[in-house]
Every structure is written in structure tokens, then in C-alpha cells.
Amino acid sequence: MNKISKYTLQSIIIAIVIAGCIYGGRVEYTDDVLSGMSLEKYQYIHDRIAPASQYDVAQEYMKNKKFYDSKIY
């Protein structure tokens, strides 16, 4: 294996590891936000911004946390 292919392979592996860490962090963030939210609150936000992923719901909740926490479900 020459130097160019060795460094290319190392770069690809490093990029995959970094992407995996970023993805893992995003999943962990989403789980943390959603675990503190009631099902009714989640459903309300999901229906309001539909179509939405769990990450979208978590972002919307964090952007307008005071509003959603003041609502009675």
C-alpha cells in the first residue's frame, strides 16, 4: 500500500468516526428532550408542525419551551 492510499483510507475512517459521533450526539439530544416531555405535548407539537421527525419536534420544543410548557394538555 502506497502512502496516498494509506492516507486516503485513514481520512475516510476518520470522517466516518466523526460522522458517527455527530449522529450519536444528535440522537442522544433528541432522546433527552423527548424523555422530559409528556405524550400529549409531543403529539400536539408533532401535529402542529407535521410532517415532523422526532428531532424536528425536539427542536421546536426547545425553541418555544416557555410557550409549550405554559399550555395545559
Score class of each variant (00 low, 15 high):
32 D>S: 06
17 V>T: 15
40 E>F: 03
56 D>N: 14
39 L>N: 06
1 M>T: 13
10 Q>E: 14
8 T>G: 09
9 L>G: 05
39 L>G: 06
61 Y>G: 00
10 Q>K: 14
42 Y>K: 05
20 G>D: 15
71 K>N: 02
57 V>I: 15
40 E>G: 13
30 T>S: 04
27 V>P: 02
39 L>K: 08
47 D>F: 03
6 K>C: 06
16 I>M: 13
28 E>K: 05
63 K>T: 02
56 D>Y: 03
37 M>E: 02
49 I>F: 06
18 I>G: 09
53 S>P: 10
38 S>Q: 05
40 E>S: 08
22 I>M: 15
54 Q>I: 03
64 N>Y: 08
8 T>H: 09
12 I>C: 06
26 R>G: 12
62 M>T: 12
55 Y>S: 13
71 K>E: 04
65 K>C: 01
53 S>D: 14
60 E>K: 12
30 T>Y: 02
44 Y>A: 01
68 Y>C: 01
71 K>D: 00
11 S>M: 11
16 I>G: 04
25 G>A: 10
70 S>K: 01
29 Y>S: 01
60 E>N: 08
5 S>L: 07
33 V>P: 00
10 Q>M: 13
9 L>H: 08
20 G>Y: 13
39 L>V: 06
6 K>V: 14
49 I>K: 03
71 K>I: 10
27 V>I: 13
8 T>R: 06
51 P>Y: 07
45 I>H: 00
47 D>R: 04
28 E>Y: 09
71 K>Q: 10
56 D>S: 14
13 I>S: 12
47 D>H: 05
14 I>C: 14
60 E>C: 07
22 I>W: 12
10 Q>N: 11
38 S>W: 03
11 S>P: 01
10 Q>Y: 09
48 R>E: 07
58 A>N: 10
28 E>F: 09
35 S>H: 05
29 Y>W: 14
18 I>F: 15
32 D>C: 01
49 I>Q: 05
59 Q>I: 14
33 V>D: 00
16 I>F: 12
72 I>D: 09
60 E>I: 02
42 Y>H: 07
20 G>I: 11
69 D>T: 01
69 D>N: 07
3 K>M: 10
35 S>F: 07
13 I>G: 02
56 D>L: 07
68 Y>T: 02
68 Y>S: 01
46 H>R: 08
36 G>R: 04
21 C>W: 12
39 L>F: 05
20 G>R: 09
70 S>A: 09
57 V>N: 00
46 H>V: 03
46 H>E: 07
42 Y>C: 01
21 C>M: 15
69 D>Q: 05
25 G>V: 07
70 S>D: 14
66 K>C: 00
28 E>P: 00
49 I>E: 06
60 E>M: 11
62 M>H: 03
36 G>D: 11
43 Q>R: 08
49 I>D: 05
55 Y>G: 03
